[in-house]
Amino acid sequence: MGKVAIKANALIKWFGEGETKTTAVKSASFEANFGELLYIVGPSGSGKTTLLSMISGILKPNEGNVLVEGKDIWKMKSDDIADLRLHKIGFVFQDYHLFPRLTTVENVAIPLILKKMDWNEAIKVAMEYLDIVGLKDRAQLPPVKLSGGEQQRVAIARAIAGKPDILIFDEPTASLDGDTGKKIVEFIKTKILNPDRCVIIVTHDSRIYEFADSIMKMEDGKITAFERNTLQYV
């Protein structure tokens, strides 16, 4: 296993105040390493997405800290956290959140454009990533013309185009059929994951557990199990 990519220490997050106060994550601590495909699993409402948001610099924890490649991200300024997300972390959202008014290749180019890459150069690089996910021939179509699996791959291409060290997937197979879901995760495992990259997947789809290097189980805001050998866990 490689170096530590993300280290979460005693993360606590609650929402609301007084009688409406709900604690979504209760003192969660774990490590994710480079070269590792980590699953965060658990039922709906168990705090998976909240935990994911805290470790990726999107939601500030009430207590605890997050070290990304050794840096405490929640001690950074908001613009620096945005920079960290742009340069170090790639996201694949559950609903993909592709831009319907842009072409597929323009969607993939977004992180590159945010990194101030020249438009034409960004499109050229994005085209290479579309090739990696096998959608080069769909480059000029709007995302709405693509199937669910293809949109998922576009979202993956967009996430990896910025060459992030950490990739985060939120329910990547939730809206895909079983076969397509398996193919997508297999693709992630074989093509996207590498020794210099950490991939974290939030899911409750047990059909794809077989691809995980590690599985962290959450229930009611707590980490209830952490196995670094998926086969044993399953």
Binding site: R85, L86, F91, F93, D95, I110, P111, L114
Partner: peptide, 13 residues
Amino acid sequence: ERFGALKAIGAKG
């Protein structure tokens, strides 16, 4: 949600 996605990806305010 597109602006939110941009923000999540790393766009600054």
